[in-house]
């Protein structure tokens, strides 16, 4: 590819580039805080499913005929 073609290609890419929203420091901090909150909710959900499974399973295993 010649130099001129490369430049034209770069210009074409620029034309199709999607403008990224402007994220200032405060927004990045809030996004991080929200992501941490979502992570904790997901961890809590995993723990909840595990504990409920044990609770439902526990009685049945304990009372099974040996």
């Amino acid at each position: 590819m010649s130099g001129e073609e490369e430049k034209e290609d770069a210009r074409e890419r620029d034309r199709h580039k999607i403008e990224a929203p402007h994220w200032d420091e405060a927004m990045v901090k809030r996004r991080r805080q929200r992501n941490v909150a979502i992570a904790w909710v997901l961890v809590a959900l995993v723990v909840l499913f595990f504990v409920v499974t044990i609770a439902k399973l526990g009685g049945n295993i304990a009372s099974r005929p040996l």
Binding site: W23, M27, R30, R34, A37
Partner: peptide, 12 residues
């Protein structure tokens, strides 16, 4: 309009 300004507290 783009969102992303709310804190976890705002969502709560």
């Amino acid at each position: 309009a783009d969102g992303g300004m709310g804190t976890a507290g705002d969502f709560f």
